[in-house]
Amino acid sequence: MFEIFSNWVAAFFTLCIFSFLYKDNPFYRFAEHLFVGVSMGYAIPLTWNASMIPNVYRPIFLQHRFELIFPALLGALYIFTFNRKLNWLSKFPIAFGMGLVGMGVPMSMNAGVLVQMRGAMIPIQDINTFLVWVGTVTILLYFFFSKAHTGAYGKIVKVGIWYMMLGFGASFGYTVMARISLLIGRIQFLVIDVVQNTIRFFGS
């Protein structure tokens, strides 16, 4: 029974959100604001339980690992970001975080640049690798702005533009598919979880 009731509540808010397709209205704004509030209300205690309890409270107060007081205090300095006079203190944990990001630079360089470059430098063995080669070269030439895109050079970079247009077309097609999928998900919920389950519940 509770599931049926909660599904109808969800269905009501789904229809509130869908009502925006007709025009902006109080039902839509009510559902939108409630969603933001509920998400925050859910996330804050969950974060507290998953962060403060296992990483600060339990090890320091129950297991007496007092060396953790220092990183806990360092993290607590973030709170001063809201204070105009003392917000310089919040820069210490930020600096520490930036140092950690720096640790990932070599690995990011490897995964994001070097491996991908190596993948673009394979021998031309078939039509696919030939097309990849043409696309890579012509698009790189397109983004070389020290030479005017005229004459024979202009014609070559135009091939690059066509490649990019095809890429944008593929992305756009996928985007349409994604947006339709979201609508499908909601209508599936309304048809199956709400209407059919309600009929089944009261019919049985």
């Binding site: 991908q116 993948g119 890429g167 593929a170 992305s171 996928y174 985007t175 598919m177 994604a178 999928s181």
Partner: peptide, 12 residues
């Protein structure tokens, strides 16, 4: 991935 992100994944 969501379909929106799919085209970006092919290089990897």
């Amino acid at each position: 991935v969501t379909a929106v992100s799919a085209a970006d994944v092919y290089p990897q």
